[in-house]
């Protein structure tokens, strides 16, 4: 896949250079690309809302630039939101954390309090590409790109994260889980920008975890991803749980039967078996060279129990 993409890209890079060098004709609308870095969110919203052709928010650019480079998209307008003050902060709020839209993955990974409170979300962030990619990539971008395999999305959804969205009609708060609409699609409207993502305060004895299965250990796309977020009572019984599956359907899935299988238990073998069966039953995966349908269905069950155990162990250790 890498080779083929690289070969195709060789040509594109040449086309791009020819265009940049002042050659006319080649490169089509790429010569018409406009870059704006507005000073406020309102100005960014207006630019997007008034755009006639394809417009894109530019955050870390790790999806947008790749998509431009491989000719998947030819935007007319890029609205860089990184110069907007106040978006690049992780702020403690009501016992939780508000993560601005331009905070990079590495900035999250280096934030000790965030890592201690939401380790499962950080599991997901750590899996986003290389150190280099995480130096730019944002979780808002990971979410808004709409990939069913985006690694930060299942743990954010399981955490009950809420996005603050600014648009032409004003501000609204929407659960992260409600934003994905299918491959490359979101439920955001024209001109809407995610300003920040809020991770709520945690109840005592809570833990979360995320794992994915990939053919390689690093730099690969999830074949299946599972996030579990749960809370225990003082005797170690699960009193609430959220289980979210990634990469096994056009959007993330939160099968009610998965959570039901473990609430009221201490993750005894029977509960874990039921959880695995519920996770496998919920999958509606694609069948491709990275994993057959049957394989993905099986792995979803295996991962679900493994991740639930990890979240459980964390919950017992986090006071």
């Amino acid at each position: 896949m890498l080779l083929q993409a690289a070969r195709e890209k060789g040509n594109l890079a040449k086309i791009r250079r020819a265009t940049v060098g002042g050659d006319t004709g080649q490169g089509g609308s790429m010569t018409g690309l406009r870059y704006e870095s507005p000073p406020t969110l309102d100005a960014a919203v207006a630019l997007l809302n008034n755009a006639k052709g394809l417009a894109r928010v530019l955050a870390g650019g790790t999806d947008v630039i790749v998509q431009m480079e491989t000719d998947l998209i030819e935007p007319e307008l890029l609205v860089d939101i990184k110069k907007i003050p106040g978006l690049r902060t992780i702020v403690a709020e009501n016992g939780g954390f508000r993560i601005g839209a331009t905070v990079s993955g590495m900035e999250m990974v280096e934030h000790a309090a965030l890592c201690a409170t939401w380790p499962g979300v950080i599991d997901g962030v750590k899996l986003i590409g290389s150190i280099q990619v995480k130096g730019r990539a944002t979780i808002a971008g990971n979410l808004c790109n709409g990939s069913p395999a985006a690694d930060s999305v299942p743990p954010l959804a399981a955490a009950g994260a809420v996005a603050r969205v600014i648009g032409p009609q004003g501000t609204r708060e929407i659960a992260v889980a409600k934003i994905p609409a299918g491959p490359g699609k979101t439920h955001l409207g024209k001109g809407e920008i995610v300003e920040s993502i809020f991770l709520p305060a945690r109840a005592k004895h809570s833990g979360d975890a995320y794992e994915r299965f990939t053919p390689r250990t690093e730099m690969d796309i999830a074949v299946v991803g599972v996030a579990v977020n749960l809370t225990l009572d003082t005797s170690g019984v699960v009193i609430s749980a959220r289980v979210v599956l990634g990469a096994v359907a056009p959007t993330i899935l939160e099968p009610a039967d998965c959570a039901k299988a473990i609430v009221g238990t201490r993750l005894e073998e029977a509960a874990l078996e039921q959880l695995a069966a519920a996770a496998s039953a919920a999958c509606r995966p694609i069948d491709d060279k990275r994993g057959t349908r049957e394989f993905r269905v099986t792995v979803a069950g295996v991962l679900a129990r493994r991740v639930a155990q990890k979240a459980y162990d964390r919950a017992r250790h986090i006071a």
Partner: peptide, 8 residues
């Protein structure tokens, strides 16, 4: 640390 091909 970044990839300069992913920065405009």
């Amino acid at each position: 640390l970044v990839c300069s091909c992913l920065v405009l």
